[in-house]
Design a protein around this nucleic acid. Structure first.
Ligand SMILES: [Mn+2]
Ligand SMILES: [Mn+2]
Ligand SMILES: [Zn+2]
Ligand SMILES: [Zn+2]
Lengths: 130, 130
DNA sequence: AATATAATGCAACTTTGATGCAATAAGATA
DNA sequence: TATCTTATTGCATCAAAGTTGCATTATATT
């Protein structure tokens, strides 16, 4: 196991996540840093940041991967990972602190869960109302 | 909107789903029918079968798509679609009739959910115990 | 400053899935 | 049964997403 170096590229990624309230999809990150670094580099930095526990990832409604930094709320919420929300209108995804109870599942051992709620986010609800 | 023809290829797919208790991933279907039909045909038949309401699909833990036929239990379980289970050991996925309650989410409108429980299936639990 | 090696860029490659179009075959009609 | 209509398929081609090997570069340590 090696040390993670604080390179220019790594700093850019960290900044992007610090500036964002919500999760960021790989597709968006690749576009955003297209001029600054190779796509291979983006993928590899995300891998490292997740492995080192700075970020976590989840699968969006269309099977695409999203990354988000950990916060006090989303960090150790439970053994089973916290749920996420993805907006059907604008596509953005957020980490949720919502506590979803998983009833016991006979004849199975449930270790984790990928819980994605889908609908309209606050911004998009306001837009519709107006 | 046209009529869905009961072709040789369509029959093969229907048979595959009728013979299977669990969901089947696109990857597995492509391999299984590699000799029998073009991959484009597999994709197109799955699209049609889902659109016509014979099958439904969901996203697996690695972002890959799975298909399964509807049953009395999984059909109209609720507005929010029923949960699924994917085994971390053997990779297979199943539809669940388990009822998972989603608490109200302030400032959001939740229309559907993608709920995937991950762990060990019955077969794999037995294997470990022995 | 010199060194060790983690990180990056680049090219090549694989995988997955979509698309346009000509050929085929299912099902309806006569 | 023969004919007809068009839904479906095969095939070639393409695009997007992601991976890998390796030479080069940049970071952190001494
Ligand atoms: Mn999260
Ligand atoms: Mn199902
Ligand atoms: Zn929105
Ligand atoms: Zn299993």
């Amino acid at each position: 196991m090696g040390i993670i170096r604080h390179t220019k590229s790594v700093k850019s990624l960290i900044q992007a996540f610090n500036e964002s309230e919500n999760a960021i999809s790989v597709a968006v990150l690749l576009k955003r840093f297209k001029e600054d670094m190779n796509k291979t580099t983006v993928y590899r930095i995300l891998d490292r940041m997740e492995e080192s526990g700075v970020l976590h990832s989840f699968i969006g409604k269309d099977g695409d991967r999203w990354y988000s930094k950990y916060t006090e709320n989303t960090s150790a919420s439970s053994t089973i990972s916290h749920p996420h929300f993805q907006c059907d209108s604008c596509g953005k995804s957020e980490c949720l602190t919502l506590d979803i109870n998983i009833p016991p599942l006979p004849n199975h051992k449930v270790d984790s869960a990928s819980l994605l709620l889908i609908g309209q986010c606050q911004d998009c609800l306001i837009e519709i109302t107006q």
